[in-house]
Nucleic acid binder design. Structure first.
Lengths: 233, 233
DNA sequence: ATTATCTATAGATCTATAGATAATGC
DNA sequence: ATTATCTATAGATCTATAGATAATGC
């Protein structure tokens, strides 16, 4: 057994040797994100994180009192990566002009591209949700929820204006998130090599599918059932 | 500390005392499914399983050489619960008659209802996929893949027949699975209480949304982009 | 002098096993 | 007599801490 001192650090960067406290902290977070997203919170040991970062476990507990604190730190790190306000602003502008297509295209584009650029995120969120950690919930409260409400309100408005078919609005919003989310799950979770869809085609298809569905007048058949716009809080 | 002998067994049933080997085995599997789905494979200890089943850990290793073997046993258990062949048969009949609506409605109904009746399943599958266990992959190879190919082939056929708009077929199939899957994820993973959608409304909405989207003729705008039906293996 | 880092280790927990015990079936 | 079950425990691993060491900044 050799010392692990100068092992070829697996970590994310060529950062080696002694770092400032802040730099090391950031590195540990990045390494932890990578490992947690691959193997989950419980599936990743502090030893692995330390090794991947090129330090000993003691360093981790120096920066983060507990393993849980390290996990929490990831939320802040990730939350800061999002230009969330700007995203919402763009959607609002499209909504102002009643440009349904631009709005939904922008929504899908953002979500699909985000997940393409950050494959770890969806795994991290799913692990968090499954393991009952607060990360996913906090994220939803902070980000998803707002967008969700925005879409909901917009669709309800367009329904009142007669532009959209009276489908169950909650189910429609659910579908809006479902399509891009599932697209990235197929990429990052299950390896459906035979079903891969390039980002731009996915975006185009989702947009068209959704819009055609929403704009359609009630078909001749009895497909339209009881439409609902209840609980419009 | 008292003996755990006659503790009020937390397990799934009132099965107590000494069981036959087979009955105990089944009980352990059911208890394990419940716990694994709640806390994941690594997040669940053999001790917890044993306690929930009202036995000692030694019993678990009597029935299953390793913890992994217990996990694998779940696959067989779950796989046997599905009337998969019949499901496919029903879909084929609708396809025969080109009854698009009945076909997709049946597909959504099956998926939504299945997940409603078995909330553990989706969590189990997600954990399995995330943790890289074979369960999810095996399930997909065995079940999902067939349905996926069936839908794909049907949509391609309907496109050739001129009934469906030429959207990217992979993206459409992805959406078919996305909507009901996400619906049950919202229920069982994230507690979106404010967005709950009753099963029947979800089914109706998904069906209408998808069909309208597929049947629609290319809109006036330039939404239709490059349609693709490549890789038609 | 300050502080990032390491060594060494405690204490808890987890999977798994060996051998003893007791409930069932014949 | 058979076998389901328990007791007790090994050995590995995991989180976390205390105290020593060595690299940096002044």
């Amino acid at each position: 057994m050799e010392k692990t001192r100068t092992l070829p650090t697996l970590g994310t960067a060529l950062e080696e040797g002694r770092m400032s406290s802040e730099v090391r902290r950031q590195q540990l977070i990045r390494v932890a994100i990578s490992l947690f997203s691959k193997k989950g919170f419980r599936g990743t040991t502090t030893k692995e994180i330390a090794h991947a970062a090129g330090v000993t476990e003691a360093m981790i507990f120096r920066h983060f009192p507990t393993k849980d604190d390290l996990y929490s730190a990831i939320l802040d790190y990730k939350a800061n990566q999002l230009e969330f306000a700007q995203w919402l602003k763009e959607l609002r502008e499209h909504a102002e002009r009643r440009d349904d297509e631009a709005l939904f295209r922008a929504f899908f584009t953002k979500l699909v591209n985000y997940h393409c650029s950050d494959g770890d995120m969806i795994r991290l969120m799913l692990y968090s949700a499954l393991e009952g950690h607060s990360l996913a919930q906090k994220f939803h409260d902070k980000r998803g929820n707002t967008i969700q409400k925005f879409l909901r309100d917009y669709i309800l408005m367009r329904q009142r204006e007669g532009a959209f078919h009276n489908l169950n609005v909650n189910a429609v919003v659910c579908s809006c998130f479902a399509m891009p989310t599932n697209h990235s799950m197929a990429r990052n979770l299950f390896q459906f090599r035979n079903m891969e869809v390039p980002a731009d085609e996915a975006i185009a298809t989702f947009t068209q599918l959704l819009l055609s569905g929403l704009r359609q007048k009630p078909t001749s058949k009895k497909t339209s059932r009881k439409s609902s716009r209840k609980k419009s809080e």
